[in-house]
Simulated assay, not measured.
Amino acid sequence: MSVALVDDHPLMIEAISSLLLRSGRFDVVATGVCANDVVDICTRNTPQVIVVDLNMPGDIYTAMSAAICASPSTKVIAFTAATGVDSAIRALDSGATGYVLKGSSSRELIDAITSAHSGETYITQHFASRVIAALRDTSLRRRAAEAVKLSIREQQIVRLLLHGKTNKEIALTIRISEKTVKHYMTLLMQKLHVRNRLEVVIAAQKLDERGAAAMH
């Protein structure tokens, strides 16, 4: 199996190379020391698996995504001392198939490379439950955010609400009946999980602030 290693610590690369070569199952085809090397190696060498340290010069997460675009058959394993769940989620979102902590055993790293090559996701065992729980929470938050996406008409009504318009004034402004405005208000209460007009305005204000923050 062709494997590439990218880590800015020469001793780490030397140790992993020796480990993989001794097993007789792997061929180390390239090594690198920074984020840019990840993309270059995948473009030139198309290794079956590339093991990447996250704490290196350059934007490593963008590099992982770009490397997978350059060589879709290459599987990426993040091999890192970073024990934060956020780092793991970001690496997996960037396309990593494995996340192995540097405190793991050599057997775990080999298992991760083998699993990644087979298309299976591998996370350091004692760390996996935390990552899975966080991924579940992240998924729920994303679904909740998607549920609050408003239609164009709902956005129009929200903007007018934020300007203090009554239902009658909203109806006249966007040329629909007052009854239709009330229908949209009911939909907005359901979408925003609120109980009355005032809470719709408060929730809409928060949405508006989040949208403005995302623009900067």
Rank of each mutant, 00 (worst) to 15 (best):
K165Q: 12
Q156F: 00
T121Q: 15
I202K: 13
S151W: 02
H193G: 01
A81P: 00
L162C: 07
T173E: 15
D111N: 13
L92M: 15
V148G: 01
L172P: 00
V201N: 05
R107F: 06
F79L: 03
H163N: 14
N167M: 10
A128F: 01
I77M: 03
H126L: 04
N196T: 06
L92K: 03
Q125E: 13
L109Q: 04
R90A: 05
D137G: 03
I170S: 02
S105T: 15
I113R: 06
T124N: 06
I113V: 15
E199M: 12
N196C: 10
L92Q: 07
S129C: 06
L160C: 04
L140W: 03
N196G: 13
F127R: 02
I170D: 05
H163K: 15
H117L: 05
S106K: 09
E120Q: 14
L135G: 11
Y184Q: 10
S177I: 01
I77C: 01
D137M: 14
V100K: 07
Y122N: 02
A112H: 03
K102A: 01
H126P: 14
E108V: 05
A203G: 09
M189T: 02
R153C: 01
L172M: 09
I170P: 08
K149Y: 02
D111M: 10
R136M: 07
Y99S: 09
V131F: 07
H193W: 02
V131H: 09
H183V: 04
